[in-house]
Amino acid sequence: LNLKQAKEEAIKELVDAGIAEKYIKLIANAKTVEGVWTLKDEILTFTV
């Protein structure tokens, strides 16, 4: 999975969960695949 694909998957998951745009922007700015997954997990843990 490359960075672009990771971001697309994570953003789709966050949108489906009804997460606010400000958190989705954090994913869009992530620099690594690991960073994308870590941010996604943290956002889902603390906002859902």
Rank of each mutant, 00 (worst) to 15 (best):
L1C: 07
L1F: 12
L1Q: 11
L1I: 12
N2R: 11
N2C: 06
N2K: 15
N2S: 14
N2M: 13
N2E: 14
N2V: 11
N2L: 14
N2Q: 13
N2Y: 11
L3C: 02
L3M: 04
L3G: 01
L3N: 01
L3T: 02
K4C: 05
K4H: 09
K4N: 09
K4L: 10
K4D: 12
Q5H: 10
Q5K: 13
Q5S: 08
Q5M: 10
Q5A: 11
Q5N: 10
Q5R: 11
Q5D: 08
A6I: 07
A6T: 04
A6C: 05
A6G: 01
A6N: 03
A6L: 05
A6F: 04
A6H: 03
K7H: 03
K7Q: 08
K7D: 00
K7G: 02
K7W: 03
K7S: 02
K7P: 00
K7M: 12
K7E: 01
K7A: 04
K7Y: 05
E8T: 06
E8L: 11
E8A: 11
E8C: 08
E8D: 10
E8G: 04
E8K: 10
E8W: 09
E9C: 06
E9A: 14
E9F: 10
E9R: 10
E9Y: 12
E9P: 00
E9H: 12
A10G: 02
A10K: 00
A10H: 00
A10T: 05
A10C: 06
A10Y: 01
A10L: 05
A10M: 03
I11W: 05
I11T: 06
I11L: 05
I11S: 04
I11N: 02
I11H: 03
I11P: 00
K12I: 06
K12R: 12
K12M: 07
K12N: 06
K12C: 05
K12E: 04
K12W: 06
K12D: 03
K12L: 07
K12V: 04
K12S: 06
E13K: 06
E13G: 04
E13D: 07
E13Y: 09
E13R: 05
L14V: 02
V15Y: 12
V15R: 15
V15H: 10
D16F: 11
D16M: 15
D16Y: 10
D16A: 15
D16K: 14
A17M: 12
A17D: 02
A17G: 05
A17E: 04
A17R: 12
G18N: 07
G18E: 03
G18C: 05
G18W: 03
G18T: 02
G18L: 04
G18Q: 05
I19C: 06
I19V: 15
I19F: 07
I19D: 01
I19Q: 02
I19L: 06
A20V: 05
A20T: 06
A20N: 11
E21P: 11
E21Y: 11
E21R: 07
E21I: 09
E21W: 14
E21D: 11
E21Q: 09
E21K: 07
E21L: 10
E21T: 09
E21S: 09
K22N: 07
K22M: 11
K22Y: 13
K22I: 09
K22H: 14
K22P: 12
Y23P: 00
Y23M: 05
Y23N: 02
Y23C: 06
Y23T: 03
I24P: 00
I24L: 11
I24E: 02
I24K: 03
I24W: 14
I24S: 03
K25G: 08
K25Y: 10
K25V: 13
K25N: 12
K25F: 07
K25Q: 13
K25M: 11
L26K: 05
L26N: 03
L26W: 11
L26C: 06
L26E: 06
L26V: 06
L26H: 05
L26Q: 07
L26F: 06
L26S: 04
L26R: 05
I27V: 09
I27M: 05
I27C: 02
I27S: 00
I27W: 01
I27A: 01
I27T: 00
I27E: 00
I27K: 01
A28Y: 13
A28D: 13
A28V: 10
A28I: 14
A28G: 08
N29F: 12
N29C: 10
N29E: 12
N29V: 07
N29D: 13
A30K: 03
A30N: 01
A30L: 07
A30S: 07
A30R: 03
A30D: 01
A30E: 09
A30C: 14
K31L: 15
K31Q: 14
K31I: 13
K31Y: 08
K31E: 14
K31S: 14
T32Q: 02
T32I: 01
T32V: 02
T32R: 02
T32C: 03
T32D: 08
T32A: 02
T32W: 02
V33H: 03
V33L: 07
V33N: 02
V33T: 05
V33I: 11
V33D: 01
V33R: 02
E34C: 05
E34W: 07
E34H: 08
E34G: 06
E34L: 09
E34D: 08
E34P: 04
G35E: 15
G35K: 13
G35T: 09
G35F: 07
G35S: 14
G35N: 11
G35Y: 09
G35H: 14
V36L: 05
V36M: 03
V36N: 00
V36R: 00
V36P: 01
V36C: 02
V36H: 01
V36G: 00
V36Y: 01
V36D: 00
W37P: 00
W37M: 13
W37C: 06
T38I: 14
T38C: 08
L39P: 00
L39N: 02
L39F: 04
L39G: 01
L39E: 01
L39C: 03
K40Y: 13
K40A: 06
D41V: 13
D41R: 10
D41S: 11
D41A: 13
D41G: 07
D41T: 11
D41E: 14
D41Y: 14
D41L: 12
E42Y: 15
E42G: 04
E42D: 08
E42N: 08
E42K: 14
E42F: 15
E42W: 15
I43A: 06
I43H: 01
I43K: 00
I43N: 00
I43G: 02
I43T: 02
I43V: 05
L44K: 06
L44I: 09
L44M: 10
L44H: 03
L44F: 07
L44P: 02
T45C: 12
T45L: 14
T45S: 15
T45M: 14
F46H: 15
F46E: 11
F46W: 15
F46A: 11
F46S: 12
T47L: 15
T47A: 15
T47D: 09
T47F: 15
T47P: 09
V48R: 03
V48M: 14
